[in-house]
Every structure is written in structure tokens, then in C-alpha cells.
Amino acid sequence: MDMALDASGEETDEDLLAAYGQGDARAARILTLRLTPRVLSFAARLLGDAAEAEDVAQEAMLRLWRMAPDWRTGEAKVSTWLFRVASNLCTDRLRRRRSQGLDSVPEPEDDTPGAEARLLTEARARALQEALDGLPERQRQAVILRHLEGLANPEIAEIMEISTEAVESLTARGKRALKAGLTARRGELGLHDD
């Protein structure tokens, strides 16, 4: 179970959403703190663009607020539902981007001086993001949900509306492609002597 960013880890997302549906502002605050980081990082990795990811996160959360009174407990996990909404929003944006021929704007470099280890971590994260950007969209989505968001295959299957076997196939192909794409950069990423 994921740790929450708040002090009410014992309350499930479903309980909190039901409470918010009854007008509980505290529940909305906890859900905001708990779910926004997850949906934001998912969208940022899928889109490779921080500003667009913020828009997607806000829109996905807005849809969650809107459907709160109609939420049927036990039907799905709130986080699964939210990831699916965010995934669809990202897909729409990626399609629009392709049709407009726009490239994603590269993230500004963080100039904060820090330890060498931190710089290496950032370089690795950046290299992985670049490799992810080169994957077919469905592979990228499956790899992000499995290896970065840490979700189990059945939940990913539910989010992507495919079978568990299809998830396994997508993640396996995605990992193979990532390895192939990143092999040439092992040296610069400090992997040669790991």
C-alpha cells in the first residue's frame, strides 16, 4: 500500500471521496494531497512536459470532484479511476501534439549546485525520460505504471482496459526497447562499474 502524504493513512480514498461528496472539505484536502502527486508524476512522464502535466492533473482531479456524489463504492479504486482519466487526457494531448507537429518543450535544467550523486541521479532520470519518450505510447504507459508508479499488473490492466497478459507483453517489450536505447549511454550514466 502506498504511503499517503497526510496523517490519515487509515482512511481509504473511497471513504474520503464519499465524505467529500457530503461536503467535507477536510476530505477534499486529504485527497488533493494524496492523489495529486501521483497523477502529476504519471502525466509528466507520459507527456514529458511539466506544464501540460499540471493541466492534466488539475483536469483529472476536477472530474473526480464532479463525479464524487455518483461514486459507487466497491466498483473500482479511486486511484485506478483517476489514472484511467489521466491516461485518456494524456492520450488526447499526445494525439493533438502529433497532429500539430509540435515537439515537447525540454525541461529547463536545474542549475542548483549539489552533490555529484544528485547530478548523476538527475542525469539518469533524464536519460530514462528521453528513452521513454521514444517508446510507442501504450508501451510507455504500461512501463510507467508498472515500474515508476509501482502498480500491479491487474490494476494496470484495468486502467488501460486490456488483459493482464497484454500488460505483461507491453511492459516486456517496453523494457527491451529501453535497454536497447540506453545501452550506448551506460558510460555517461555511470553504469559501467555498477
Binding site: 502529476l40 488539475q58 538527475e122 532520470a125 529501453l178 553504469l191
Partner: peptide, 22 residues
């Protein structure tokens, strides 16, 4: 190890974004 690096470099939501969502 690259996945791990990406996990620890996950973007934090800005205060402005959290305020807009609230």
C-alpha cells in the same frame, strides 16, 4: 537503477497547483 533514479526525481506538485485543485 534508472527507474529508481526517475522515482526519486518525481516532480512535486507546486503549491499553486494544489491551491487550484482545492
Amino acid at each position: 537503477s534508472l527507474f529508481e533514479a526517475a522515482r526519486v526525481s518525481a516532480p512535486d506538485p507546486s503549491a499553486a497547483l494544489l491551491a487550484r485543485i482545492m
